[in-house]
Design a protein around this nucleic acid. Structure first.
Length: 434
RNA sequence: GCCCGGGUGGUGUAGUGGCCCAUCAUACGACCCUGUCACGGUCGUGACGCGGGUUCAAAUCCCGCCUCGGGCGCCA
């Protein structure tokens, strides 16, 4: 195995051993071709029946598609071959035969539905364009991490098994923890605040969140990847700056390091990094502009949540990322700080992509008394959250942060139709395996 | 949580009461073919989600169940 050469590295004149999957067999009679595929690409193996050992030809042409084979032979320059080189085999070994009837077609001649693809993810990932999504995903996460580090953040990980939720009990997955009631965490919100209040000051986390909502849409998952930021001595404007930087860094990373993947996905032409400075609209301006589109039957009034239809209409009009700031306090969570000069208006903000909401954030309520009051107003028992509120008594600086939906970022960057495409093994309303 | 629309060979589809012991593509099996690159050609195998009902007749209409997808709400 050590001497294995990847398809893309085979140079004319080399004696090599290539190993991978049988992508296709084309038997033309006297001559036949086996297309071998590995992570680097494809290479053609040539079989000339009259001139080669009969057993060798039989083995090479007798394998089923997607079987794993190892081929040793001489690489020759050949302009008629798809990659301008082909291997003339001296030996062929079938390492792992595949059943002849495949549950989906990795060569892509026949489409498969998403559900079939997810049931057979290993085979699905043998398709170049599917592999490309996950290579881009890795790059997006790398670029985001690097940018967080560049703006002075420390990466943290926080518990996913918790005693209480962030905003109440309704949308949490309950579990049993050594006989005690516990939950899968819906957000690292409270924990990252606790760390921002330490000397660490600026933190980020990229990790799973769990939501027990029974929605069934192409943009929701029950297990998602949250990209979170929290910074001490930051206000909502600072947090928006960081959100914008991280989102743009993700696009830049893809533009710089994923040319091949964009090509595979058919996006090479149209892909572009968004213009600097996402517009910042206040909530009030937003509802006015949505009303002006005429997309809604009933015009929005102050205090309304933004319906999907209105978001879409405005997204189309703006055509780029934009922030919505200064939300009514009553439709934002209690831990979001209100403006000092107007308690009806909060520091909460959302970052929107024309297709959907990407980020939610704001400056946090850091004053102990106000925070406890907020819990009570939401009908939550502050005592249950003592592990959190207590720390606000020992020097909690003003701080702000946000949560960015990782899969939503990926799907909007790549224009994926369904968020499940952006996760290897998605968890949704009905899918629990694989 | 509310609402809507689907489930036909391995895969993806056509078929809205008799024209259907079901179309096409691909896959699979057999044979032919010395430059394919979605190779081509000939022949063949293979399916109406499950249960009940209506009808002379059901893939097609009705009911229940299972299952998949979508819209809204909510959210990342």
């Amino acid at each position: 195995m050590q001497d294995r050469t990847h398809a893309a590295d085979a140079e004319p004149g080399d004696d090599v051993t290539v190993a991978g999957w049988v992508h296709e067999l084309r038997d033309l009679g006297g001559i036949a071709f086996l297309i071998l595929r590995d992570s680097s690409g494809k290479i053609q193996i040539k079989f000339e029946k009259d001139e080669m050992d009969e057993a060798l030809v039989e083995t090479g042409l007798g394998v089923a598609r997607e079987s794993v084979v190892s081929v040793s032979g001489r690489v020759e320059e050949e302009p008629r071959a798809p990659t301008d080189v082909e291997v003339v085999p001296e030996s062929v070994e079938v390492i792992a035969p595949a059943d002849p009837e495949l549950p989906l077609d990795p060569s892509g001649k026949v489409d498969a539905e998403l559900s079939t693809r997810l049931d057979n993810r290993t085979l699905d990932l043998r398709k170049e364009e599917v592999q490309a999504i996950f290579e881009v995903r890795a790059e997006i996460l790398r670029a985001a991490r690097e940018r967080f580090r560049a703006v002075g953040c420390t990466e943290i990980t926080t518990p996913k098994i918790v005693a209480t939720g962030t905003e109440g009990g309704t949308e949490l997955f309950p579990i049993t923890y050594f006989g005690r009631e516990a939950f899968m965490n819906q957000s690292p919100q409270l924990f990252k605040q606790l760390i921002a209040g330490s000397n660490v000051e600026r933190v980020f986390e990229i990790g799973p969140i769990f939501r027990a909502e029974e929605h069934n849409t192409p943009r929701h998952l029950n297990e998602a990847t949250s990209i979170d930021f929290e910074g001490a001595f930051c206000d909502d404007g600072d947090a928006m700056d960081v959100a914008e930087e991280v989102v743009r860094a993700a696009y830049e990373g893809v533009a710089e390091n994923c040319a091949d993947q964009l090509e595979s996905l058919g996006l090479a032409e149209e892909f572009s990094v968004p213009e600097a400075s996402f517009p910042r609209l206040t909530y009030e301006e937003t509802i006015e502009r949505i009303n002006a589109t005429g997309a809604l039957e009933e015009p929005l009034v102050w205090g309304d949540d933004l319906p999907t239809e209105g978001e879409k209409a405005l997204g189309e009009e703006i055509g780029s990322h934009y922030f919505i700031t200064d939300w009514p306090s009553e439709i934002k969570p209690f831990y979001i700080k209100d403006h000092d000069d107007d308690p009806e208006v909060s520091t909460g903000f959302d970052l929107m992509h024309p297709r959907m909401e990407l980020v939610s954030g704001g400056q946090r309520e850091h004053r102990y008394d106000h925070l406890v009051e907020g819990f009570e107003q939401q009908g939550l028992d502050p005592e249950q959250f003592e592990y959190y509120t207590e720390m606000f008594r020992y020097g909690m600086p003003p701080h702000a942060g946000f949560g960015l939906g990782g899969e939503r970022l990926i799907m909007t960057i790549l224009g994926l139709e369904n968020i499940r495409e952006a996760v290897l093994f998605p968890r949704d309303r009905q899918r629990l395996s694989p």
